[in-house]
Design a protein around this nucleic acid. Structure first.
Lengths: 345, 345
DNA sequence: TTGAAAGCGCTAACAG
DNA sequence: CTGTTAGCGCTTTCAA
């Protein structure tokens, strides 16, 4: 059938070991032998068999990425960074999109199968405790992206600090009645972003008020979605009257802001004139909707994730390395700050 | 080290063949032997070695997807369909994102490596002729998505018919001076969409005019991008005066429309009052921008792509099966048609 | 129904 | 520098 190293060896009049050495650029092959073998390889248009190589070498040159809701723009951007870097290193990237939690475990198990992948990237979900040992036991490199566990390499974004920066921006613009639209407090990002909001208010001696935090958990993704954002905004507007009415709102994510904008428009509330908005993520839509928002360096996170993985492969015993990125404020129209139009991104 | 079928066999007091049969639910194993083996498997928490299985069985249960600009919403949606279906079939999906044409060939070669994948999906690019034979020779299943070649399974969208429908919609709304903003005619979709536009005009006895077709090839993706759309729109508006001024435009893609909307807004041209727009794709942004557009059934295309692949694996000699989807008109605000607001999607 | 044995195609250690 | 040999861990005949 297909040509193997035995065919090459016979044809070139050498041993299979020599052929293998040529294939793997092993130094100890004489120039002329190498040339001869290479010629035969070309002539017979030989292709090494991936599975055989993997079995013998115990390396797969493959990594897997376990990602929730992977149609989300955040993940796409990160993935782009991962993908570009993987190509550079010659790794194959297996994409595991998870739609529910049991699926996440399934893919973790699958990734743990011997001889399947050389490393795993786990995105934005809590790593089940039972897998902590498993990964350590098998010594399979694992990097957590947008997630954290003390025992593993991880990359994440400073949600708390980012939220503080966002709220400060609103304060600096003169607002004091600042509400927050949040998602389910069951998620860590929601808790962190609320805490950051609280801290910024406190710094400015503005009292934190529970009735100024609007949370809707309708829809998917723990309330990080358009409908929930819309519902919260309608709720906010419905209750917003009197002397100390809210003039600005920090929204926990851009997707929610998209819904919030719809809700505001429908109820005749102008943004930013009646209500200034700052949110979080900087997804693609944010630019179009002219949202002021906290930008996460998504592509860079992806690149770094892959680098951490390869580093870990080379050095399995190094202590876990955790990296956190500080998001940056991108000012657009929704916050009401006057910006020269050329600066609008 | 790790436990192999030999360990299982010894422990269970059977031969490795029997163990293998249990693993693969081969029928001819007695119930009690099977139970015994299964118990040992569980007790030693055995895991089959993927590469070894692949080498011996000559199956990888893996497919690859070669995708250009994979941050594009169209591909993400299609990929979601592929991914969901792949999970169902137990396939691993290797994602190859291509940034330039030489990369596409690299990934094709890589996919052709023996023992690497069982099937390939190639997206939205012209399959280089030199690979036609290679795939046929190796008999590696290949399905073209949003692309076409007579010798392979394919899934695509009726660009010509879609463009005709789009243009007809504008005609039906009473417009007769209808321009088109297109991308590079080097691409088949651009040619088809222009032809569809031409046909619709012809049907309505409206003469096709070359000076009403605006093409910009600046930026990436052959002009299918925001900047090019903006440039074309500015060009159009700059030339748009006099008695027979253009009142509607068919734009070849939603991304271009996004730029075109910006350009129009900046130049004080209102959409749809001054200029009605219909475009093509229905990416996520289209909904937010309230674009009337031709929707492609992206998720369904992904599902079908994987189904075609598995069908082909089972039946390598069946004639190529080509499926084309007819896009559907989604009416939103940009075309100026009066729509009850609940109907706005 | 089951065990033994022969591959699958390659890598790598070991002598020369 | 090079050939030989022994695995890598599994699937699959082939007899029994």
């Amino acid at each position: 059938m297909s040509v193997t190293i035995y065919d090459l060896a016979r044809e070139a009049g050498v041993g299979i070991g020599t052929v293998s050495r040529c294939l793997n650029n092993h130094p100890s092959v004489s120039a002329e032998t190498r040339a001869k073998v290479l010629e035969v390889i070309k002539r017979l248009s030989y292709q090494p068999h991936a599975s055989a190589q993997r079995l013998a070498s115990k390396k797969t040159n493959t990594i897997s990425a376990i990602i929730p809701f992977f149609t989300n723009y955040f993940f796409i951007q990160v993935l782009q960074g991962v993908q570009d870097k993987a190509a550079e290193f010659g790794f194959d990237l297996i994409l595991y999109g998870v739609n529910n939690t049991s699926q996440a475990e399934y893919y973790l198990r699958r990734s743990l199968h011997r001889g399947h992948v050389d490393g795993v990237m786990f995105f934005s979900m809590k790593l089940p405790e039972s897998y902590v040992q498993k990964f350590q036991q098998i010594r399979l490199p694992l990097v957590l992206v947008d997630a954290y566990h003390p025992e593993f390499d991880s990359i994440s974004v400073k949600n708390l600090e980012g939220a503080t920066m966002a709220t400060r921006h609103l304060l600096k613009l003169g607002h004091t009645n600042i509400a927050m639209i949040n998602a389910s407090l069951a998620t860590q990002p929601a808790r962190d972003r609320m805490e950051g909001y609280r801290i910024a208010l406190e710094e400015a001696d503005v009292p934190f008020r529970n009735d100024r935090v609007f949370i809707s958990e309708i829809g998917k993704q723990d309330g990080f979605n358009r409908e929930a954002g819309r519902a919260s905004m309608e709720d906010l507007i419905g209750k917003n009257s009197g002397k100390d009415r809210v003039t600005a709102v920090f929204i926990a994510s851009d997707v929610q802001s998209m819904g919030a904008l719809e809700g505001a428009a429908e109820l005749g509330v102008r943004v930013p004139e009646d209500l200034a908005i700052v949110s979080f993520d900087d997804i693609e839509l944010a630019q179009h909707a002219q949202l002021t928002t906290m930008r996460q360096p998504m592509y860079e996170m992806g690149v770094l994730a892959l680098e951490k993985l390869t580093t870990r492969m080379k050095n399995p015993d190094a202590p876990p390395s955790q990296t956190t990125f500080l998001p940056s404020l991108v000012v657009r129209r929704s916050c009401g700050a006057r910006v020269p139009s050329e600066q609008l991104v």
